[in-house]
Structure formats: structure tokens, C-alpha cells
Simulated assay, not measured.
Amino acid sequence: MNTAATDEWAWNQTRSDSAFARWEVADHKDTPGEVLEFLSRDHVEEVLINVAHNPSTPASALRLLSRHRSIIVRRAVALNTTTPPDVLDFLSRDSDAEVRVDVAENGCTSPSTLRTLSTHSDRTIRRLVAKNPNTPQEVLLEFVKVEDDDFRMDVINNPSASLSTLVAVLDVSDYTSYVAQQELLERIDVHTYTDEELERAVAERYASSDDVDLTYLSEWSRDLLVGWLTSV
């Protein structure tokens, strides 16, 4: 079906009295943005859910639907990876916990919003923040300090966790330290980091500690970290 034919089909479906026809066009990946904009004011919830889910839905329509009375519609907006960051930020303060959970999980949620959600009272939300690749490194480091292996594992498995963040996990429980070591081995190309960079990553972790000899620490990082990496 060419673009003109798709447009004509979409508008014909949109004008139909059949809720199923409108539901179908709202779900189609090639439905034009202006049609989805029109359907964002439909009176049938199921149609609105599809509009809110559709990655082709314009930002203006998603912004409108983010204020809809239906929790399911707002959840669909919160899960849509094309929802603008400002709309996700608005939804992060939604009255419904499930909407906030979806925002924390969305890979397009802004670092500033995730930083705010990282101190949320809901453990599920905090864990999703720990897993989100947009979460700032300083927030991930705060999760490492939490005496909870689940959070530490979430940080280890976060694809955006930096070398310094992974090294920080080595300072906690034996279990997570071991897993962090394996993750370092798997995720770091030994030709990417120099000895000095590895030393700096460890030194940054302990920079605020008065009882750590950084000279010794550099030697430790060189012998231990580089030893791990070159033994792969």
C-alpha cells in the first residue's frame, strides 16, 4: 500500500462509526500523524490507548493524552518511547503508581527525572531507575552504597554503568564483588583502557576516604584490575 493509499485508508477508517475500524487505524504503524492527532480526541478508550502506544503519534497528541482520566491511557503514554521528556517528567508525578513505574522504565526518560525518581519511596521504581541506561552515574553510585544486592546487581547489569561505577561495586559484599569482577572481564576491552585510566577509576571511588593510601591503591588497581582484564 503506497503512502497516498495509506492516507486515504486511514482517513476513511477514522470517519467510520465502527470503533474497531478506528482502533485498527490507531494501531497501524503507517498511520499519518495528523490522523493520530485527530483520533487522540476519540471517545472510545481502546482507540485512545492505541494512539498513546503508537510511535508515530505527534508530541502534541501525547501531551494531551498524558492528562487523560484513564490510567491505562496515561500508562500507554508513559511507555511510548517517542513521548517527549517533558511529558514523561509530568507523568513521573502522576497520582497512579503504575504510571510512575512505567516512566522509570522508559529508556527515553531524562536523567533529571530519573534522578528525582531515584529517591522515590517505591522500591520497584528505584530498582527500575537503577536499570535505566539514562540514569546518571552519580545516582548509580548511590545505589551501589545501598546495602541491598538487588540494587547492586541492577547497577552491574546497567549497560551505561561506567568503569568507575563497576569498580565501586568491588568494594561491597563478596557476592556482588565477584559478579562485578566477571562483568568487568566481559564488558571492558583490555585495549581500551590504560593502566592510568584503571587506576584513576579506583582512585575516584576512594578519593573522599581519609584512611586510604592512594599510592597503594593505585598499585592495587594496577596489579589486580589489569591482572583480571589481561587474564581473559
Results as ranks from 00 to 15, higher is better:
Asp195His: 13
Trp11Phe: 09
Met153Lys: 06
Asp213Thr: 10
Asn134Cys: 08
Asp96Trp: 06
Ala19Phe: 11
Glu37His: 06
Ser208Phe: 10
Ala130Pro: 05
Val232Arg: 15
Asn157Val: 02
Thr192Asp: 15
Leu217Gly: 06
Val99Gln: 01
Glu183Tyr: 14
Glu142Asp: 15
His28Lys: 13
Val190Gln: 06
Asp7Ser: 15
Thr3Phe: 10
Thr109His: 07
Thr135Tyr: 01
Leu79Val: 01
Tyr193Pro: 08
Leu64Asn: 05
Tyr175Leu: 12
Leu36Val: 04
Thr124Gln: 10
Thr82His: 06
Arg100Val: 13
Arg67His: 03
Ala4Tyr: 04
Ser40Pro: 06
Tyr216Met: 11
Asp223Asn: 15
Ile156Cys: 03
Ala5His: 05
Glu8Leu: 09
Tyr178Pro: 05
Glu46Tyr: 01
His120Pro: 08
Ile49Pro: 00
Arg67Ile: 00
Val129Lys: 06
Leu36Ile: 03
Phe20Trp: 11
Arg22Val: 11
His28Asp: 15
Asp27Ala: 08
Arg93Pro: 05
Asp213Pro: 09
Asp102Val: 05
Glu46Val: 02
Leu65Asn: 01
Ile49Asn: 00
Ser18Ala: 04
Leu65Tyr: 01
Cys108Ser: 09
Glu186His: 12
Val77Ile: 02
Trp9Thr: 06
Leu65Thr: 01
Phe20Ser: 09
Ile71Cys: 03
Thr109Gly: 07
Leu117Val: 10
Tyr206Thr: 07
Thr113Val: 12
Thr192Cys: 12
Asp42Tyr: 01
Val25Gln: 04
Glu37Pro: 04
Thr192His: 12
Val73Trp: 00
Leu217Thr: 06
Met1Pro: 14
Val202Asn: 04
Ile71Arg: 02
Ser177Arg: 12
Arg75Lys: 11
Val35Lys: 02
Gln182Val: 12
Val44Trp: 02
Leu170Tyr: 03
Ser208Glu: 12
Ser60Asp: 05
Ile71Trp: 01
Glu219His: 14
Asp122Leu: 11
Ser208Gln: 15
Ala10Arg: 02
Ser209Thr: 14
Asp189Gly: 07
Val51Leu: 02
Thr215Arg: 14
Asn106His: 03
Pro85Trp: 01
Val139His: 03
Leu64Phe: 05
Leu36Arg: 02
Leu224Cys: 09
Ser70Arg: 02
Glu24Tyr: 04
Glu142Asn: 14
